[in-house]
Design a binder for these strands. Structure first.
Lengths: 250, 250
DNA sequence: GTCTATATTACGATAGAC
DNA sequence: GTCTATCGTAATATAGAC
């Protein structure tokens, strides 16, 4: 997860802010603080509602210092969003590995999605709502990531319908499932009535209910299925740029 | 729905932009065009991403002409949002009148919510996502309307749980139900696979499934219940400020 | 790597003529 | 009621010293 920090080291990137052709090394710490500040502020005030002065001040650097790490405000938004989508995708695929049963795949997908959104609400909100402020290639790239992620859900639902485990509720079902879980980023609080594992189970149950999941004429519940280990799950959805506390600079 | 337009007429307001102590009358047509332009642009680019020049140009008036109708950009956002919440609330209450059964109340609430969001996606997006750009009293006022609306849902679910018709899934269920239907504003297209009445029925079924709605040991479906007349429903959710087509000025 | 200082444009809002 | 013209500020981004 940590990037190399050797002088002159070429980073292959893929989610990080663009490497300029500079001979100097970059401070990993500063880069992280900038992304965290951007993540926090974009989620709190929106992309257009956030000024580069706000980001720089929150991160504790001068405005021009920011431009050593990112070529523009847009690039910071892209960096935050791409990290979210990358981790969401990779943690899903990793957790789905070796699971074939459609019902189990659905509750796993839901558990990853729920855990991610509860654990990284700020970053998730940015990726879900602010990414549309991007334009051109950046937006297209993010859109492809989103499509790929939704594709995994679509395949899982289709397989379940084919096997007769799920009712066929069309693509509407996928959109409804994703939307209801994504909303968690807006209201989840660590001191709420449910812990993250409990939230995963409840949303798993709701997903199975919503798809009318049944086997041998009996309705399925999460309780009947094998769930991923909660600790492992929480570890997999850990995102480094999620702001840990309200920044004191503000 | 139409406001009086007599010179010097005092408007009691309640959702409209503030009446200044002006002796001149206001053009209802211009006011509507301004709100429509604001609605369109706020939904497309976000509140902070929209300039007053954009709004004025789209509405076909000079920038200063706008300020004859609204004291600030904030006030326009408040006006749009308040109209959304007012209509959502009033159409729900009207359609719920004389319906006591919790399961029927749930599918009616869902039908109104779905129809509203499919029919007025731009306005709904503004009310759902941009209202947080408001500050102070304006924000508090809108928040109260939202709380009141969610309260109707909460009561309905609680009654259903009390009667043993719904499973108890806590407040999480309410949030999930609202969220999944609200998402319609993001993806619904009039030329999609489902018409609005069909969408209402499908979401009604999903809501019943999600709540595990059953009576006499048999799972409930919308098909088993009385639904409001689709035409009447669509008429009730008609919002005057929803932009009808993409503005040509842009 | 990070800073101070500044260029340049866009923003929200207003004054005052008609 | 709607316009043209403009004010003052804040925005993004860059130049160049250290």
């Amino acid at each position: 997860m940590a990037t190399t920090n050797q002088p002159g080291g070429q980073r292959t990137s893929g989610g990080r802010m663009k490497a300029k052709s500079s001979r100097r090394a970059r401070s990993v710490r500063t880069e992280l603080q900038l992304l965290r500040a951007a993540c926090w502020l974009f989620s709190e005030r929106g992309f257009h509602g956030t000024g580069i002065r706000d980001i720089a001040e929150t991160a504790g650097v001068a405005v021009s210092g920011m431009y050593y790490y990112a070529a523009s405000k847009d690039e910071m938004l892209e960096a935050v969003t791409r990290r979210v989508m990358d981790l969401l995708m990779s943690s899903s695929e990793e957790t789905l590995r070796d699971i074939d049963d459609p019902a189990e795949r659905l509750v796993v997908l839901m558990a990853v999605h729920v855990a991610f959104h509860a654990r990284n609400p700020r970053a998730a909100k940015v990726a879900d709502h602010e990414f549309q402020a991007l334009t051109g290639d950046a937006r297209e790239g993010i859109q492809q990531l989103r499509d790929a992620y939704e594709g995994v859900w679509a395949e899982t639902l289709r397989a379940g319908v084919r096997d007769g485990v799920f009712q066929d509720r069309g693509s509407v079902a996928r959109l409804a499932l994703l939307q209801m879980a994504t909303g968690i980023a807006h209201w989840y609080r660590p001191d709420g009535e449910l812990s993250i594992p409990q939230l995963c189970e409840r949303f798993g149950d709701m997903a199975l209910s919503l798809m009318g999941a049944s086997r041998a004429g009996r309705l399925l519940q999460v309780h009947d299925l094998t769930m991923p280990d909660p600790d492992l799950l929480l570890e997999r959805v850990e995102l480094s740029i999620e702001p840990r506390n309200e920044p004191s600079h503000t």
